[in-house]
Amino acid sequence: MAEHNHKDEVTGVDTTGHEWDGIRELDNPLPRWWLWIFYACVAWSVVYMIFMPALPAPPGFEGFTRGLTGNSERVNVAQQMADLQASRSANFERLQNADFQAIESDPELFRFAIAAGRSAFGDNCATCHGSGGGGAVGYPNLNDDIWLWGGTFEDIRYTLHVGIRSDHPDTRFSQMPAYGRDQLLSQSEIRDVTQYVLQLSDQSFDAAAAGRGAEIFAMQCASCHMEDGTGDQAQGAPNLTDRDWLYGGSAAQIEATIHRGPYGVMPSWEGRLSEPMITALATYVYSLGGGQEDGGDEMGAGGQ
C-alpha cells in the first residue's frame, strides 16, 4: 500500500493510494458531465422505485413492492396474448366449420389457415411426422400422394378429429394380425408371402416361393390389401404395389412387419385443439403437396 497523497511527478496530480506493480491511480476529478448523469441516474432510480415494482418484501412478508403504477409484466403478457387472440379471432371464426372450397377461394383466409396450421403442426405433430411432415419409419410422410386413410381435405380433417387406433369412440381402426408372434403362419409361410409381396411391388423375388406365397396372400391378406395388393383406404390397408413403405420395403423389413403386425397410433385431436385449429391443421397438411381433391384427383401426382 502506497501512502496516500503521493504526488505524481509527471502530472503533479495526487494519487488515490492504489498501486499495482508500480502503477498508481491518479486522483483526477470525475468529469462534471459524468457526475451529472450519475446524479440523474440516482434520481431516476428513486422515481422508478416509487412507480414500478422494485423491492422484495422484507423477511416475513410475501411478495414485493408494487409501485404506484402497479405494472406487472405477467399481466402485460396475458393482455398481449389476449389482444393477439382477439386480432386472430375473426379469421378463426371463419375457419369454424368452413369447407375447403370456402378456405381456398379466399386467399387471405387460406394463408392464415396455413400459417396457423404450420405453427400447430410444429407444436403437436412434428414430434412424430417430422418438422416438415416428412415422416419417418412408422410415421407416414404427409408430403407425398400416398394416404392410408384418404388424402382429401375432409379425410385429413376427420383423421385429425378421431385419430388412428386412439381412444376416440369413432377412431379410425384396423388391425393387422401379428402372423409370426401369434403363430398364425409358420416362419416359412411368412417368408413365402414376403416373396409374393416383393413380386407385387416389382422388386426381385424368388418365383417358387412367391407362387406359394400367392395362395397364402389370397387367403390371409387379400381381404384388406385386396386381391391385387393395391390396398383399401376405408380400412387403412396400405397399397403394397407402390414404392412407398411405412415400415420399410426390403425382404427382411417386410418379413418383420408380417411377423409382428404393426399397430401405429395417432391420437385424436378433438377437444385438445380447437375446431378452427383442426381445420387450419388440415389445411396445412393438405397444402404440403399431397392433398387430393374430392373426386380422387391427385394434387400431388405431378399431373403425369
Partner: peptide, 18 residues
C-alpha cells in the same frame, strides 16, 4: 426450396420438391 423434407418420392416413383 423446402429442405424438410428435402424431396418427396411419389407413388409413381416421380420426385417432387416444394
Amino acid at each position: 426450396r423446402d429442405r424438410n423434407p428435402n424431396y418427396v418420392t411419389l407413388s409413381d416413383g416421380s420426385v417432387r420438391n416444394s
